[in-house]
């Protein structure tokens, strides 16, 4: 039983991170029908920038949480700027092009960012300095660290904030209007280029936070980490119903739980034939199942043709 609880906790932590990244995919898709495959690299850049700053300050004597916040403070503007630049350079010129064109540039941007990161930070794994307190708490016979609690709580707060932004503010209304019908939104006076830019910037801010969380949680970061993480977050967004914000959150948490529980029990279930290193398989098994059986996702609806 305590193993089960432990895997649920691990799954929630992982799922919170997936959810934050999945939001970036789903918001961009919702507003312009584009899969921004470079989004995983924005997470990676966030992790690398935060980790670099944190490593430099790790001997400064400042409290660990302050160092982490400074690292995040550095990662946020870099990621937001990257997201903004990606849209301006790679997607805006192709706004009226066939759907396949921006998909190809997305992959191109992803490769460029990966290689750029490799040139800056090298091919090595970077260890996350042990600056954060490693307090452990007992819960139903399982342990949860202070960091894990922080990840779950911060992710939940950010998601709540995003829902408030989208549902309750004028900017949120403009975003939803642009997602539903761009020409009509323009008629209302919405500068849709600005709304699209802001969507990328907000998604990238979430990615920066997720980047710091991933590198702190696994104590590691490297230039290639964005690829697989991005694919999984994309899977989470599809699982929830791409374009749907609540769906991305649900999909992220579910995917984290599926992976974590799957990895925890696959050894027992297959008599030791398959081990927990098959964890990644679950995400893509889920992706295939969703695409075959419920392409609109769990909470997504069939998108009606625009009138």
């Amino acid at each position: 039983m305590d193993i089960f609880i432990q895997q649920v906790i691990n799954g929630l932590v992982l799922g919170s991170i997936y959810a934050l990244v999945a939001l970036g995919y789903t918001m961009v898709y919702g507003i312009m029908g584009l899969i921004n495959f470079a989004h995983g690299e924005v997470v990676m850049i966030g992790a690398m920038v935060a980790l670099t700053v944190i490593s430099m300050l790790s001997d400064s004597g400042l409290p660990g949480i302050v160092i982490a916040l400074i690292g995040l403070g550095a990662a946020l503007p870099v990621c937001m700027g990257t997201g903004f630049a990606i849209e301006r350079i790679a997607y805006r010129p192709l706004r009226r092009a066939p759907k396949l064109a921006p998909l190809i540039t997305a992959i191109g941007v992803s490769i460029v960012l990966q290689n750029l990161a490799m040139l800056i930070w090298g091919r090595n794994y970077h260890a996350f300095p042990p600056i954060l307190p490693t307090s452990e708490h007992e819960i139903f016979g399982a342990t949860i660290t202070g960091l894990q609690i922080a990840i779950i709580v911060i992710a939940a707060l950010m998601m709540a904030g995003l829902i408030l932004l989208v549902q309750r503010t004028k900017l949120g209304r403009a975003m939803r209007a642009t997602a539903e019908n761009p020409p009509i939104a323009q008629l209302m006076g919405v500068d849709i280029n600005r709304v699209i830019s802001l969507t990328f910037v907000i998604g990238s801010a979430l990615a920066a936070v997720a980047g710091l969380m991933v590198s702190a949680n696994y104590s590691i970061a490297h230039y290639y980490m964005g690829f697989i993480l991005g694919l999984k977050a994309f899977t989470a967004a599809v699982l929830g119903g791409i374009g749907n914000i609540a769906g991305a959150m649900l999909g992220g948490i579910l995917l984290g739980l599926i992976e974590s529980l799957g990895a925890g029990y696959i050894g027992d279930l297959t008599g030791g034939f398959l081990g927990s290193h098959y964890q990644d398989v679950f995400a893509f098994f889920v992706l295939i199942c969703v695409l075959v059986f419920r392409p609109s996702g769990l909470v997504g609806e069939k998108v009606a043709e625009r009138a």
């Binding site: 209304r173 939803r176 209007a177 539903e180 019908n181 020409p183 009509i184 008629l187 009606a304 009138a307």
Partner: peptide, 8 residues
């Protein structure tokens, strides 16, 4: 065709 925002 009216062009209201159906999901608002």
């Amino acid at each position: 065709g009216r062009g209201v925002f159906p999901r608002m």
